[in-house]
Amino acid sequence: MIYPPRCTICGEQVESDFALCGPCWRDTPLIAGLVCDLCGAPLPGEGGGEAVHCDDCMRVARPWAQGRAAMLYRDNGRKLILALKHGDRQEVLRPCAQWLAAAVRPMMAGGEVLVAPVPLHWMRLLKRTYNQSALLAQAVGKQLDQPVCPDLLIRTKPTQSLGGLTHDNRFQELDQAIRVHPKRAHLIEGRTILVIDDVMTSGATLSASVQACQNAGARRVLIGVLARAAKDA
């Protein structure tokens, strides 16, 4: 009665904690139906059981085996990402982790998967004080009941913001920028790894992270992103 539950996005009163009100729920672009098997972007039509890929993933080679996204990076999807990434609104983790866990669960086929986030360089981590992808990975791992290693991957050099860079420049900027933590390499060999990030645009950061895992001997690497920057189907 003193602190009634409020909508995670707009603050209107709702029936339970960490929930969304009706209008905000309608404006949250959760992905459902037929999706790209490599990035989770929504696709038109109905699936026939075979894997299908979006135009981006047919044009750009993806080093990972499969990928999924919980929502599109627009409308309330963008608001939730920015609230987590720049607003320190960590209460949004609970619903977001539930959505992302539901999206990636079908890829896991019942086996154990080691969950790891895309890393931040220590200089950026010092400025921001937290890695939103690491918080998301921990919450998703808990939802999936799978082990999480928050520092499995490290950034070996600071990189500029990828916003505004061309597709090729994004990949060049991330070249050799991500490595497996030397003290965590023994955790990777022969295992399936699920790499978590908040947003996928070009896939450059995820590609660098996945390649680092593969170089360390991972058997299979999957990706899961909270939001995919893509056109709606």
Rank of each mutant, 00 (worst) to 15 (best):
D27M: 09
T156R: 10
M1P: 09
C24H: 07
G163M: 13
P147Q: 11
E46F: 10
G45V: 07
V210Q: 02
L100Y: 08
D175Y: 14
R220F: 04
I178D: 00
D151P: 00
D145T: 13
L82E: 02
S133K: 06
Q90R: 15
I223Q: 03
R191W: 08
C7R: 07
R62L: 09
P158M: 09
G203K: 03
C213R: 01
E46Q: 15
L30V: 15
G67L: 00
K127D: 09
E50W: 09
R184E: 13
L135D: 04
L187C: 01
R59F: 10
P117A: 08
R105C: 08
R62A: 13
H167S: 03
C149L: 12
W99G: 01
Q132R: 04
R59K: 15
A103D: 02
G49D: 07
C7M: 12
G217I: 09
G141W: 08
Q160N: 02
L126M: 13
K79R: 15
P182T: 08
H186A: 12
C54V: 08
P119S: 03
I81M: 02
D88Y: 12
S16P: 06
T159W: 07
N131K: 06
P119D: 00
A102I: 05
E91L: 09
G67C: 05
I154L: 14
L82M: 03
G163H: 11
A177Y: 07
L152N: 00
C36D: 02
D88L: 08
E189D: 05
C36S: 05
C21H: 09
P63S: 10
S161E: 04
K142M: 11
T166P: 07
G164V: 07
P117N: 06
A208C: 11
G217V: 10
T8P: 02
Q176T: 14
A65D: 10
D17F: 14
P147H: 12
I178A: 00
R191K: 15
L80C: 12
I196C: 01
K157S: 03
L114F: 00
L226Y: 04
G217T: 09
E91S: 09
H121I: 06
H53C: 12
R74V: 01
G22L: 15
W64A: 08
V60C: 06
Q143Y: 08
V118S: 06
Q138Y: 03
G49Q: 07
R184T: 06
M107R: 03
Q66M: 13
K79L: 10
K157F: 02
H186L: 04
E91D: 14
C7F: 05
P95I: 01
R219V: 01
I2D: 14
D175P: 02
A137W: 03
A216H: 02
L162M: 14
V92K: 08
T201S: 11
L136Q: 02
P106M: 11
S202G: 04
G11C: 13
K127M: 12
V148N: 07
R26T: 13
C213W: 01
D175H: 15
G11W: 14
Q13E: 14
L38N: 00
R94Y: 12
